[in-house]
């Protein structure tokens, strides 16, 4: 689609706001609809849009396959890591109340970290899946 100038310009205009919107969804998830799952998918949608318009090779040059695969792993690690950290600080697994000086703030920071883990995993997995399916034919 590299010769389609309208699509290319439209995509260039759209991709930035898509990433911004994903961040909004992620951090406004406490006050309105949204959260890690949705934000991760929207992030992935931005990358997928880039890949669809500018080609898979350029998308892979911007965000390499290795990085997204690592992201898929890292998110689960962050999530479980928060749980284990709570255990080391004297609470139960995933009991955020002990993470900070008072329980309410600790809950908020725990939820933020866990949602970040979900975001990273979902983003990594969705982009990995897209790369796998889209890159299939040329590898044969």
């Amino acid at each position: 689609m590299r010769d389609q100038i309208i699509l290319r310009i439209a995509a260039k205009i759209l991709i930035g706001p898509i990433f911004l919107f994903a961040l909004y969804v992620q951090f406004h998830g406490d006050y309105g609809p949204g959260g890690g799952f949705q934000a991760g998918v929207i992030f992935a949608a931005g990358v997928i849009l880039y890949a669809l318009v500018f080609g898979l090779d350029r998308a892979r040059a911007v965000i390499p396959t290795a990085i997204v695969t690592w992201c898929g792993t890292l998110g689960v690690l962050i999530f479980a890591g928060v749980g284990v950290a709570a255990m080391f600080m004297g609470g139960n697994f995933l009991d955020y109340g002990v993470l900070l000086y008072d329980a309410e703030h600790a809950q908020h920071i725990g939820i933020l970290l866990v949602e970040a883990g979900v975001l990273v995993t979902v983003f990594g997995v969705m982009v990995t899946l897209f790369y796998s399916f889209a890159g299939r034919r040329r590898s044969r």
Binding site: G35, F37, V41, V122, V125, L129, S132, F133, R136
Partner: peptide, 20 residues
């Protein structure tokens, strides 16, 4: 159901990979 939807698309991708 929110989590089920995301897991659903992941498992669907798995099924489609098997089809491929």
């Amino acid at each position: 159901m929110l989590t089920a939807i995301v897991v659903g698309v992941a498992t669907m991708a798995m099924a489609l990979a098997l089809v491929v």
